[in-house]
Amino acid sequence: MANIKGLAPGDPAPDFTLPSQTGEQVSLHDLYAEKVVVLYFYPKDDTYGCTKEACAFRDAYEVFSEAGAQVVGVSSDSVDSHDQFARKHNLPFVLVADSGGELRRRYGIPTTLGLLPGRVTYVIDRQGVIRHVFSSQMQFNGHVQGALKVVKELAGQPA
């Protein structure tokens, strides 16, 4: 699998079942059966940029919920690390542990400088189709703003 391309709008979202910060197994198909899913991949718990991004999603969480979406964060950190990160920053959404980075590879998430895991956000509709992709290592708020705009469009609300 050397030449993996990232997923684009219109592609089906690869399904997964991974443990959350509580140890509960979370499956993508169960999530999008209920709501639009904002799936965001981030490099590492409790680092500067990842904390800023997580807190931006936290601060917009109610707006996402009202628009019929649920937020799910993904990194290769452990369940325990996710639990501590979520508690420390009062994160109201699910964080899933992608130990070994298999899900990251399936989504074709790039690395920065070949080292740092990429930061990419997907909006996945209720049929499991990707409707939006935003990739930026440094524009933390862009992930939230772009996803929220698409979620509101899918819900038929003004953006």
Score class of each variant (00 low, 15 high):
Met1Arg: 14
Ile4Val: 13
Lys5Phe: 15
Lys5Ser: 15
Asp11Val: 13
Asp11Ala: 01
Asp15Asn: 06
Thr22Leu: 10
Thr22Tyr: 11
Gln25Phe: 04
Ser27Thr: 10
Leu28Ile: 11
His29Leu: 12
His29Ala: 04
Leu31Glu: 13
Val37Met: 06
Val37His: 03
Leu39Gly: 01
Tyr42Asn: 00
Tyr42Ser: 07
Asp45Pro: 08
Lys52Val: 11
Lys52Ser: 09
Tyr61Asp: 06
Glu62Gly: 05
Val63Asp: 04
Phe64Gly: 00
Ser65Tyr: 12
Ala67Asp: 11
Gly68Trp: 09
Gly68Arg: 09
Gln70Asp: 01
Gln70Met: 10
Gln70Asn: 02
Val71Lys: 00
Val72Ser: 07
Gly73Lys: 05
Gly73Leu: 02
Ser75Ile: 03
Ser75Gly: 00
Ser75Asp: 05
Ser76Gly: 03
Ser76Val: 08
Ser76Thr: 01
Ser78Ile: 11
Ser81Leu: 11
Ser81Lys: 08
His82Asp: 02
Gln84Lys: 15
Gln84Asn: 10
Lys88Gln: 07
Glu102Cys: 11
Leu103Lys: 05
Tyr107Thr: 10
Ile109Met: 00
Ile109Pro: 01
Leu113Ile: 13
Leu113Ala: 01
Leu115Trp: 05
Leu116Ile: 00
Pro117Phe: 03
Pro117Leu: 04
Val120Gly: 10
Ile124Met: 04
Gly128Phe: 03
Arg131Gln: 13
Ser135Met: 15
Ser135Trp: 12
Ser135Arg: 13
Phe140Val: 15
Phe140Gln: 14
Val144Ala: 06
Gly146Asp: 10
Ala147His: 04
Ala147Met: 03
Leu148His: 04
Leu148Asp: 07
Lys149Thr: 12
Val150Cys: 03
Val150Ser: 05
Gln157Ala: 07
